[in-house]
């Protein structure tokens, strides 16, 4: 009886919280739902006046044919853009997480000279915006790049991933340090006393425990790479979906519903990536107590 009462109360409370959340999210929901609707229409749906609005799959068909106009335009390989976007985003996600997990651990767990300074500078270098640094990064690229076009193409992926990941590293170091801090020292103490190397402890014991943190950092890295514009546009030979959309979104000429389709297509993988990483989180915490 009593437990049932508590559960009902809990459910009412949850519905209330959920209602508040949805109300707060309403504007975002509205604009993105309209965006998706527009991708299936003959015009942009903006003001709930659907009198001249017609449902059509044409935008999506054109998109997968790689075209950005109803009449005219050239055909592009949209899947190639998709692939290069995925490579950049995946690379950035992996690199930032890896570096963040290493450094975050060291700062959280090891005493060394300059530890505080390192941590502080990891925050303050965020005051260096990517749009300013890029001139210097360009300088370096100029010096380092190979001459052969085929090599440049691969090198440009490599360099974009490194340069873009670098912008996210301060974030991941700080986040990781925070997550390592939450783990009690006892977790690794016995292993270390037994003579295991720090590296082994880090990999086998600690990393599995901070999966939520890793996932959070992965998500940020992935999104940063997925949507980057200025670095990709400056260095990468291939195009990503973001630069493809950006360079075709021109208010005077563009056929907007087609861009709505492109934008929806662009958003899908990130949503899938995000939700699946959330699933991973839930598996880890399935046994945990929430309420």
């Amino acid at each position: 009886m009593v437990t049932g009462d508590v559960e009902t109360k809990g459910r009412i409370k949850e519905i209330f919280y959920l209602g508040v959340l949805l109300a707060l999210s309403a504007p975002i929901l509205v604009v993105f739902v309209l965006l998706v609707i527009s991708s299936f229409g003959n015009q942009m749906a903006t003001n709930f006046d659907f009198s001249a609005f017609r449902f059509t799959l044409k935008n999506w068909r054109l998109l997968f044919e790689g075209r950005m106009a109803i009449t005219g335009g050239v055909r592009e390989n949209i899947w190639l853009h998709f692939l290069s976007t995925a490579v950049v985003a995946g690379g950035v996600a992996f690199l930032t997480t890896f570096v963040g997990a290493l450094t975050g651990y060291a700062i959280s767990r090891i005493k060394f000279k300059g530890r505080k300074i390192l941590l502080l500078s990891m925050l303050l270098i965020h005051a260096l915006p990517g749009s300013v640094l890029i001139v210097g990064v360009y300088f370096l690229y100029r010096v380092l790049m190979p001459q052969n076009l085929v090599f440049i193409r691969y090198f440009s992926f490599f360099y974009v991933i490194l340069a873009r990941a670098a912008l996210e590293v301060p974030l991941s170091v700080w986040l990781m340090k925070g997550f390592f801090d939450l783990l009690p020292w006892e977790t690794e103490w016995s292993a270390l006393v037994d003579g295991a190397s720090r590296f082994l402890v880090w990999r086998k014991i600690l990393l599995p425990l901070i999966k939520p943190g890793i996932v959070a950092v992965l998500i940020f890295g992935f999104l940063a790479g997925w949507q980057d514009l200025i670095y990709v546009r400056t260095f990468l030979i291939d195009r990503t979906l973001a630069t493809f959309i950006e360079s075709n979104l021109e208010t005077e000429m563009a056929y907007m519903p087609l861009l709505a389709a492109a934008a929806t297509f662009y958003l899908l993988p990130t949503i899938v990536f995000y939700i699946s990483s959330q699933q991973l989180l839930f598996k880890v915490y399935a046994g945990g107590i929430r309420r």
């Binding site: 975002i28 949507q227 959309i245 950006e246 934008a263 662009y266």
Partner: peptide, 9 residues
């Protein structure tokens, strides 16, 4: 969504 969307969109 706001963070994932390309800036122009």
């Amino acid at each position: 969504l706001p963070r994932m969307t390309p800036i122009a969109v």
